[in-house]
Design a protein around this nucleic acid. Structure first.
Lengths: 133, 133
DNA sequence: AGAGAGAGCGGGTATATACCCGTTTTCATG
DNA sequence: CATGAAAACGGGTATATACCCGCTCTCTCT
């Protein structure tokens, strides 16, 4: 017989909670962890199309499209066109690049905090388990 | 130095992925796992006010208010008033109770599937780790 | 009893997320 | 080369989620 508490709900709660840790740390920069992560992925892959980016971050293309539109409005990302006129090619703006630099130590501190609190052993366990789901 | 991959993002991906497992199983009933879980909580606590329910499920009150409004529109939940005219008291309708019965085995199967796939040992590990976050 | 503090809600606003559909563009095949 | 399949996107729709503000109701002092 399965246990009482829904694994999914526990996961979602943890997800919201941990997100808020990162969000608070990044708040001075005006971005949340989802946006910060997206910026880092664009930085790593640029120039990158919406579809490609969506594949990497395992989100729906339309979701990534809307999220990047917010980043564009903030002046952090530029949305242009590649050779293929259908593709929306994403690149970071200077402001976006600058934000990543500013944000790196903030992100590090939360990430490290979690690892210290769990210990290296359990941190690895957790990530392995999450990926096994 | 902290590891490369953002714990938060891994968590969020796992959360979305696992949610989709439950969502697919519950799809025949026309509800998702969030709604199903909310119904179960209302069933357990009814009659319950919005604020109290929000506290139990660790969601913002306004979020719970909007989510229950959807359930009300579906005819699964009744929103009335308690002695305190400010309070919105929630109860399940017959339809809501019926849905919970229909859904129980569907929910069980996903829950059990996950536990079998991970094994009892790792399942417990995972839940402990998630709660330790 | 009146008044102010505080609790409980609803709705506005904004982002996150996914699914579906229609439009544009590309490309392979006949 | 024309045409139809397929890819890439944008926007519509719906839910999830949180924060903030204003309104109403309650309750406790004075």
């Amino acid at each position: 017989m399965p246990s009482e508490t829904c694994h999914c709900i526990v996961l979602r709660q943890a997800s919201r909670k941990v997100s808020s840790y990162y969000d608070e740390a990044l708040a001075p920069l005006g971005v949340n962890i989802g946006q910060f992560s997206l910026l880092r992925n664009i930085n790593r892959l640029e120039p990158v199309s919406l579809t490609e980016l969506a594949g990497k971050v395992e989100l729906d293309r339309s979701t990534v499209g809307r999220n990047t539109k917010v980043l564009e409005r903030m002046g952090l990302v530029a949305i242009g066109h590649g050779e293929d006129q259908r593709e929306a090619m994403l690149t970071l703006t200077e402001k976006g690049r600058h934000l990543l630099e500013k944000g790196a130590p903030l992100w590090d501190s939360v990430q490290e905090n979690i690892e210290i609190r769990l210990g290296p052993e359990k941190t690895k366990q957790l990530l392995d388990l999450l990926r096994a789901l």
